[in-house]
Amino acid sequence: MIRLQNIHKSYITGTNKLHVLKGIDLHIKEGELVSIMGSSGSGKSTLLNILGLLDNHDEGVYVLNNEEIKSMSETKAAKLRNNLLGFVFQSFNLISFKNAMENVALPLYYQKVSRKKRNSLAIEYLDKMGLKEWAHHMPNELSGGQKQRVAIARAMITQPKIILADEPTGALDSATSIEVMDLLREINQSGITVIIVTHENDIAHMTDRIINLKDGVIESIVENNKINHTESVKIPLQE
């Protein structure tokens, strides 16, 4: 589903050049539940943004769903994001002047789905999240956990192949965090690839595979709680 080979990314601020990703090689198969861990500033979000086509890489090969991602137009990227990917952010990123249902339905608006149809679908997804009664509430009337579940519903409504979550539990208390993680695992069980960025060990250990980032490279990959060193992980070029 996702294949990265020697991915580099630098940020240029003024005269300084900050080399954030220094050659990432990674293969994530369809249906995996993966977490990306690492200390603050290690490049987790940068990596996830590249995976999510929100940012572009400087060097290396990125193959998403059998398609190489290389200097594509924003229009094409927007289309891929809409069809293939779902995003869950730490700060929820709901649109403040739209109610829960409208927020959830929004990705379908970009697919030109009729208003009636997308609203009924949105209600359906909110129902799955246990938020049917909150459909007509504005985001500022919801708790953090509720907001994140609305965001997950929004990510799910287009039936994406991959869910990308950048610290989805970062703003939630531990009980709510577990709830959200249960939801994401449930989603994963339905066959959707889920990639979660986190710096919480508990959260990471709820996933199948933990990718540890350090200083822009993959330091180690933990699989089923067994440590494999990156040097020993061979990434085949063809799937």
Binding site: T75, A78, K79, N83, F87, N93, L94, L106, Q111
Partner: peptide, 16 residues
């Protein structure tokens, strides 16, 4: 800016 960023992340095309 942020709102438009969200919309673009979930699939709003530049033309839109």
């Amino acid at each position: 800016t942020k709102e438009l960023g969200i919309k673009r992340a979930i699939g709003a095309k530049p033309a839109l």
